[in-house]
Design a protein around this nucleic acid. Structure first.
Length: 767
RNA sequence: GCCUAGGUGGCGGAAUUGGUUUACGCGCACGACUCAAAAUCGUGUGGAGAAAUCCAUGUGGGUUCGACUCCCACCCUAGGCACCA
């Protein structure tokens, strides 16, 4: 027998698959379709690390099982290629992001192919390809035409020395990550998408979605639907009044002060009446330097400043109450101002204690009555905010809008799409904070498509989230030049049957793509109201020490080295075996030896195979059942363990019937496809193992476990007794009481109760 | 701070969802094979104890005949917090 040679085997089968394309999805096949999706990778310059392929392997196991079940599987892959890291790399090196992306995707593709994952490579897409982003721009235009894209003034992070807008990630404690200089919040006009118009649908339709409960809860909390009322508080000696939003109008009598968010407009409007405005202004400026998380993190140490010289009137009891500006109130939520009820709200309580404000226990009154009394208005508010869609950057989809002095913002005509990214000299944003595209005169200056006067292109580009909000639709018809996908293809393939991705995408990406999908459904461009039938998540792989893998920490494990040394099948099997699929887990090359040994054991079993039918009872059918169930629930680790138990058993036998071994290989194939194919061929089969049907569990062929149950006395296990499965309860109880060890513990005691839980346990309770 | 997960041997983890804690794998120890080593195979392996037995699932309480599992409080770790992907 030849030694198990992973290099030879894996090369051989990967070449065959490349040639025969057994993983190609067939449009409109009569077979039942199964659309399986993983989050397409961002092709970073760091290359693939062993964490990337874990979700691909997990879904590959499912894809291969589905094919064996006779399904027409679509399991596609592409590149989420626009984004900040590539642009920053271009800034540093001057190399065009297009070239960087090309280089990185070439590396990623080669690495992924070396793992034998059954992607349909003929449908590969790239969000930075003009043929792709043409349709991202097209969707934006539809949103614009329906009034869901609009411009608004938004606070952005601004580096005072680099003079550019920064992503939150590029700001730490009020300082710019690149230059270390100070940053502040600055207002800037940005394109917005009105996702809040879909808040209710996005919330409600979760009811019927097959998402794990934690994903649903996290989305629901993010959307943050709350029912309450708007109540008007007049400002004394002034024509102004202020609406507040509260979910507890019944506590109105306990409102002893008011708080505005420091950015609240009324603070500026009331400037002339505020006697300590210098102090107030200083506080507002301090707030500008903090990020939102920093504001919240300060936790119990509340800060704020009283707006002296003005008072508000509590509409319930007409009492004058003081007004504060404090950063624990957020300007985006509700109306940006609250009534503070320290007796009933923890944060208000902490603030009141710090500023010595009265804490008044409110007589809870009937909600509806009080709302009517103070002429309030019942409302529903959401925590969800509209989506800031502009980036003053280069490496993204240009927003297809033309600004005309006369006509205002005008959409680029659809037949002129895509608006392609022009080459630029420098990837640095302009000093005014505009995108580097603003420096490309010949690109920017155009004629208005409505009135033909001189006009200017929008120079903002879209965020990375845009391309990833609809990519699963493109896979159904990736080369279509006339539409983002043909209706027939969409009808056949959508919705995605199973989408697996990272828990870190639960609130942003997942919600954004549901929003776009629902919008496309409303304008009748897709056939379903939800994009994904089922959503599951995986945990990330950490470095050996339990830290995140990153180039800077020099703890990255490259799959190339593992594949070279141990083989793709070992890597695949280990990534499935190492721990629960949905949890973060640390890599361990030492532990990986175990699955390699397992594969070698499987390899050696070929020597024991005899040409006969299976007569003896084995664990085979128990294993079929377990592996089958575990794949469906993504408990890949226990599926592998079940196969190990079977192989350990077979190894102890003198002979292994061919039928048993072949069935086992079909079970193994989704996990270790190269090894399974090779052994399958060695057994004399001329067809591929890929053509084999998934084995069915037959309960009549399982080994009958001898029943053994535990006997507890006062909650502690004192004996194990043998029972037969058909034995009746009285017999079992009697047997338990007669056991020597049980007697020892029940002696001199009065037996109060004897419980029998069917097939599980006898529990004896004494006095 | 808020939302979502998670915390079990020396290590990764398992536990039929309230019923024999530690499956499977790594490591370690001993044995077989070998001139020897590697590989492989076998046996053992939560802690304390001579044993009976006792103690162990982050910590402290509670419910229950019985709790890793349910409830309350707390501690720690990971993910997210809207311009990272």
């Amino acid at each position: 027998m030849e030694k198990y040679n992973h290099k030879k085997i894996e090369k051989k089968w990967q070449e065959k698959w490349d040639k025969n394309k057994p993983y190609k999805a067939e449009d409109f096949s009569k077979k039942e379709k199964s659309y399986l999706l993983i989050e397409f990778p961002y092709p970073s310059g760091d290359g693939l690390h062993v964490g990337h392929p874990r979700p691909y392997i997990g879904m590959d196991v499912i894809a291969r099982k589905r094919r064996a079940e006779g399904k027409n599987v679509l399991y596609p892959i592409g590149w989420d290629a626009f984004g900040l890291p590539t642009e920053n790399y271009a800034l540093k090196t001057g190399i065009h992001p297009k070239e960087v992306t090309k280089k990185n995707t070439d590396i990623f593709r080669k690495q992924i192919k070396s793992l034998g994952i059954s992607f349909d490579w003929s449908r590969e897409i790239n969000t930075s390809d003009p043929e792709y982003y043409k349709w991202t721009q097209w969707i934006f235009l539809q949103l614009f035409k329906q009034g869901l894209a609009y411009k608004a003034s938004v606070a952005i992070n601004w580096c005072l020395s680099c003079k550019i807008g920064l992503a939150n990630e590029e700001v730490t404690e009020g300082h710019c990550e690149r230059c270390g200089g100070e940053t502040e919040k600055r207002q800037k006009e940005q394109w917005m998408l009105a996702i809040t118009k879909y808040a209710d649908k996005l919330d409600k339709d979760l009811d019927d979605a097959d998402y794990s409960e934690s994903i649903k809860i996290q989305q629901r909390n993010w959307i943050g639907k709350s029912e309450g009322a708007l109540i008007k508080f007049p400002i004394s000696d002034s024509q102004f009044s202020i609406d507040i939003f509260t979910t507890r109008p019944d506590t109105l009598f306990g409102a002893t002060y008011m708080v505005f968010a420091p950015e609240h407009r009324l603070v500026q409007d009331l400037k002339s009446q505020i006697t300590n405005f210098d102090e107030v202004e200083k506080y507002i400026n301090d707030t500008k330097k903090k990020t939102e998380i920093e504001r919240m993190m300060e936790g119990k140490e509340k800060t704020g400043v009283e707006l002296k010289g003005i008072k508000a009137v509590n509409p319930a009891n007409k009492e004058e109450i003081p007004i504060f500006a404090a950063d624990y109130v957020m300007v985006q939520y509700g109306t940006g101002a609250i009534m503070a009820v320290p007796a009933h709200d923890q944060r208000d309580f902490e603030f009141a204690k710090k500023f010595n404000l009265p804490i008044v226990e409110a007589d809870l009154v009937d909600m509806d009555e009080v709302i009517e009394k103070v002429k309030g208005k019942k409302t529903i508010k959401y925590k969800l905010r509209d989506w800031v869609f502009s980036r003053q950057r280069y490496w993204g989809e240009p927003i297809p809008i033309i600004h005309c002095d006369k006509c205002g913002p005008v959409p680029v005509p659809e037949d002129e799409l895509p608006v392609e990214l022009p080459d630029v000299k420098d990837y640095k944003p302009t000093d005014s904070g505009d995108s580097p595209l603003a420096n490309v005169e010949e690109w920017m200056n155009v004629k208005c498509s409505k009135c033909s006067r001189n006009a200017k292109r929008e120079t903002d580009v879209m965020p990375n989230w845009a391309g990833s909000s609809w990519y699963y639709l493109r896979y159904t018809d990736p080369r279509n030049g006339k539409a983002f996908a043909d209706k027939k293809n969409l009808k056949y393939w959508t919705p995605v049957d199973w989408y697996n991705g990272g828990m870190e995408h639960t609130t942003l990406h997942l919600l954004y793509s549901r929003f776009w999908h629902k919008f496309l459904y409303d304008i009748k461009k897709v056939p379903t109201s939800e994009p994904y039938q089922r959503r599951t998540s995986h945990g990330i792989i950490l470095a050996e020490g339990g830290e995140k893998m990153s180039k800077s920490k020099e703890n990255v494990i490259n799959p190339d080295d593992i594949v070279e040394k141990f083989g793709a099948d070992t890597l695949r099997l280990y990534e499935m075996f190492m721990g629960p699929f949905d949890q973060a887990i640390a890599w361990s090359t030492d532990n990986m030896i175990g699955v390699r040994r397992f594969l070698e054991k499987v390899w050696r079993l070929q020597e024991k195979v005899i040409d006969s039918k299976n007569n003896s009872e084995t664990l085979l059918h128990k294993t079929i059942k377990k592996v089958n169930e575990d794949i469906e629930t993504m408990k890949f680790n226990t599926a592998v363990s079940a196969m190990m138990i079977l192989v350990n058993e077979l190894e102890n036998e003198k002979e292994v019937p061919k039928e048993v071994f072949e069935t086992f290989l079909v079970l193994l194939a989704p996990f270790a496809p190269h090894t399974a194919e090779e052994l399958w061929e060695k057994l004399g089969n001329s067809n591929s193992i890929l053509s084999m049907k998934w084995p069915e569990y037959d309960s009549s062929k399982t080994v009958k476990d001898k029943a053994q149950i535990a006997v507890q006395v006062d909650g502690k296990v004192r004996a194990i007794i043998d029972i037969s499965t058909d034995e009746n309860e009285e017999n079992i109880k009697e047997k338990a009481l007669l056991d020597e060890n049980v007697k020892k513990w029940t002696k001199d005691k009065e037996i109060k109760k004897v419980l029998y839980v069917n097939g599980k346990i006898v529990s004896i309770v004494t006095d």
